[in-house]
Amino acid sequence: MAASRDNSSNPARIPALGFRALALVLLSVLLMFLDHRDKHLDAVRDTIGTALYPLRIAVDAPTQLWDWISERTRSRNDLQRENEDLRREQQVIRARLLTTNALEAENARLREMLDAREQVEDRVRVAEILAVDANPFRHSLIIDAGYGDGVYEGQAIVDQDGVVGQVIEAGPITSEALLISDPGHALPVEVNRNGLRTIAYGTGEFGKLALPGLPNNADIRQGDLLVTSGLGGAFPSGYPVAVVSSVLRLPQQAFAEVQAEPVAALNQVREIMLVWSAPAVSDEPRQAGREPAAEDAGDE
């Protein structure tokens, strides 16, 4: 029995404890160095991640069960009302779609006239969110699609309202995605109204993005819609990202303090869509992952 052994001998002299601890600490440092520098350790990560998959499912089960129960026990009235709402919404959308088809055709014609690259429609797949990262300072999600489903690193993730984030690590059956609100995330955007280009940085708060690269006289106002510009190479262009929530111009500062609120409900999504975009114009994945694209900010 371990306990009796502990008490009988002198446990302060556990053999080579200090040595073992030191060796393991050095090993950790080496691992971190390798992990930070390159992606040598993805296989290790994948293996352990796969082993953790059942645990993630188990932890997620109560939420799923609750969702299922509340779905099952909804009253007939509620369902009828929802049905009606959906039908009305569908009518509106259909009506809008009619004009969209015409516009699309017109757009294609105009693009042809301008000799521009044809806009290929993006392929989309729905994935479910398995877990939200426990670390409050790293806004990331685990989704139930991996490279087995064709997911790749840097892939754009959207929900029905707008851009959610991008895949930073594609595992075999699950992937990790970084949200646009993560403090290390930068996203090239443009103002929908006038095409003004800038970069939206995450702040670590779900409801706030920062646009630090805009001069005081930039034409940007509260309520402006920001859409992806597609210049970074990872995101397809034209997806809504955020709405400018405040513009603070201080005369003594060179840059305006602009904040925007993401249009996607980043902390409430349960289902997201993975986007396979048309091949980008430039192949450089410039705003990939954690490196803020500092050189882009200089363009403005």
Binding site: S28, V29, L30, L31, A134
Partner: peptide
């Protein structure tokens, strides 16, 4: 190490601290 994978941190970060 398992904690590092679960939390998506640098591989070895939690391992070092826990150690």
């Amino acid at each position: 190490i398992v904690l590092d994978v679960a939390q998506g941190t640098l591989l070895g970060q939690h391992a070092l601290a826990l150690c």
